[in-house]
C-alpha cells in the first residue's frame, strides 16, 4: 500500500511550523497510524532526516497519548477510535493524507505532532478527586450503589484524557473532559460531600487554562474514543449552578 503524507513539522514551540511531504511505499493495510509513522521514521533516520516526533505508548486505545488530526478530522475514519486504533485499511491506496497536531490555544505544540495537555492535569488537581486519604475506607459493601448508577459513573470515568474533544470543538472547550470527571465523582455517594466545591474549582481551573466555552454543538461526543456523552455537560452545568 502507498500513501502520500503531508506531516506538520515544527521544531519547538517557538519555531514556525509547516507541512512536509513524504511518500510512504510498502505499507501494509493492517498497520496502525503510529506503526506507519514508525515505518516512515526508520526510513527518514537512514536518510539523515530527523524523524517525525509523535506520541504513542499503549497502542491499544487506553493511554490517551496518540491523538492527531488526519485530513482535518479529529474523528477517526473508524469512528470512536484513537489514532493508534486507526488502521491504514481505512484509507485508499495512493491517498494523500494531512497529519497535524491537535490545535487549541490551551494545548501548545511542543514539537511536530506533540502537544502539551498538562492543562488537563491541573483541572484534575483543582478538584477532580475524592479527598479520602489513602489507607482508609469503610467496608466497601457498606456503600450500596445501584447497578445503573455504577454503570453511569463508569461511562463518565472511562475518559482517557486524549484531548480529542478539545481539538474538535470550534471553541476549544474542555467541557466534555471536565464534565466527565466531575459527573463520575459527583454522581457517587462517596463524592457527594465535595460535589459543590469540586464543581466550582474544576470549572474555574478550566476557564483559567484558556479553554473556550461550550456552545453545545455536540461535536465532542462524536469524536470521543470512549463515546462519552454530552449529557455529562448538562450535569456539570447543573452542579455548577447549584454551587454558585
Amino acid at each position: 500500500m502507498r500513501l502520500i503524507l503531508n506531516v506538520w513539522r515544527q521544531e519547538s514551540p517557538e519555531h514556525k511550523g509547516a507541512f512536509e511531504r513524504y511518500e510512504a511505499n510498502d505499507l501494509d493495510p493492517h498497520m496502525s497510524v503510529p506503526e506507519m509513522l514508525d515505518h516512515l521514521n526508520q526510513g527518514l533516520i537512514k536518510k539523515g532526516v530527523e524523524p517525525i516526533a509523535f506520541e504513542s505508548d499503549c497502542r491499544e486505545g487506553i493511554c490517551g497519548q496518540c491523538g492527531i488530526v488526519i485530513n482535518g478530522e479529529v474523528q477517526s475514519p473508524e469512528s470512536h477510535c484513537t489514532t493508534c486504533q486507526t488502521h491504514l485499511r481505512s484509507f485508499r491506496d495512493g491517498e494523500e493524507l494531512y497529519l497535524e497536531p491537535f490545535r487549541a490555544g490551551a494545548f501548545p505544540v511542543k514539537k511536530d505532532l506533540i502537544v502539551d495537555r498538562s492543562a488537563f492535569d491541573r483541572i484534575v488537581a483543582a478538584g477532580g478527586y475524592i479527598g479520602a486519604n489513602t489507607g482508609q475506607g469503610n467496608e466497601a459493601n457498606s456503600i450500596l450503589i445501584t447497578h445503573d448508577r455504577a454503570e453511569q459513573a463508569m461511562d463518565a470515568a472511562a475518559c482517557i484524557a486524549c484531548g480529542a474533544c478539545v481539538a474538535t470543538c470550534k471553541n476549544a472547550s474542555a467541557s466534555l473532559f471536565t464534565a466527565a470527571k466531575m459527573h463520575h465523582l459527583n454522581s457517587l455517594p462517596q463524592g457527594e460531600p465535595e460535589a459543590q466545591q469540586r464543581a466550582l474549582k474544576m470549572v474555574e481551573q478550566m476557564d483559567a487554562e484558556g479553554f473556550g466555552a461550550c456552545s453545545f454543538t455536540g461535536a465532542c461526543e462524536v469524536v470521543c474514543p470512549q463515546s462519552i456523552s454530552i449529557q455529562h455537560i448538562v450535569e456539570m452545568n447543573r452542579y455548577w449552578r447549584k454551587a454558585l
Binding site: 475524592i130 475506607g137 469503610n138
Partner: peptide
C-alpha cells in the same frame, strides 16, 4: 477494595 471504593473507583455492581 475498601479504599478504592472510597476513592470513587466505579467497580461493577
Amino acid at each position: 477494595i475498601d479504599q478504592a471504593v472510597a476513592q470513587g473507583v466505579p467497580f461493577a455492581r
